[in-house]
């Protein structure tokens, strides 16, 4: 799925890195033997990551109604009752389209939400599970995470609100902006190493005189 961009970095690796991967890192015997073999249970307790292909999704299920109630209880205080950011400073999670990410279409601010921007639905489950609710992370059960994930996706018109959300349903969701990303093309800018008469005129375009820089105790929380 992902290909390395052809860059000096990748080329260097093709020459050196892969050799190292296949040979030097291939030993079965440990040289030092420090540490212990973790049990399956120990790994499972911390191995919470989810991939776009569904790897890592646990058993469990949640409905739209459960998700709505859980969102109101755990999330709405920051993200708003309708997950639109609530007019506050926390991220809106619902609304927008990938088309509105173009500066030509929408000159003000890009409207970045789960629905308009996030390329994979698996990331919604993963992020809620690992980091939300803010201040009480990893407290929700898998059923609860499925319910909230399903509600958010349904509010973005990406999931049928009559259907429960679970591993199978999540794998089927195709996000609108899935093709909206491309691999880093840098270096993208070539500034010639000009030393003399590089410009005829130079104009000041903006000055930092807005008074938005904090001073004194304002620069401490």
């Amino acid at each position: 799925m992902y290909k390395f961009p052809v860059s000096k970095f990748a080329l260097g690796l093709a020459l050196g890195g892969f050799l190292i991967t296949s040979q030097a890192f291939a030993g079965d015997e440990m040289k030092y033997g420090f540490g212990v073999k973790p049990s399956d249970e120990e790994i499972a307790g911390w191995d919470i990551d989810i991939r776009p292909d569904g790897k890592g999704l646990p058993e469990g299920s949640g409905t739209y109604d459960e998700g709505e109630a859980l969102f109101a209880e755990h999330c709405a205080a920051c993200h708003g009752d309708f997950a639109d950011g609530g007019g506050g400073r926390y991220p809106p999670l619902v609304g927008g389209t990938p088309g509105e990410l173009s500066q030509a279409v929408r000159p003000g601010q890009p409207h970045k939400t789960i629905g308009s921007y996030w390329p994979y639905a698996s990331t919604v489950f993963d992020y809620i599970k690992r980091a939300m609710p803010f201040g009480n992370a990893q407290s929700l059960t898998n059923d609860e995470v499925y319910a909230i994930t399903g509600w958010l996706l349904a509010e973005n018109d990406l999931h049928d609100s009559d259907e429960p959300m679970n591993a199978e349903a999540l794998k089927k969701v195709v996000m609108p902006n899935v093709d909206g990303f491309f691999d880093d093309p840098r270096p993208d800018v070539k500034n010639p190493h000009c030393m003399k008469d590089c410009f005829k005129t130079v104009e000041i375009k903006s000055k930092a005189t807005l008074g938005v820089t904090p001073t004194g105790e304002d620069a401490l929380r």
Partner: peptide, 26 residues
Amino acid sequence: QPWHHREETSKYTDTMYNGKSRRFTW
């Protein structure tokens, strides 16, 4: 495969003028 987690999709990506976004901008 990469995991495409929140901090490498929703954040730490760069949206260009045309609305397409760069990812894995390391």
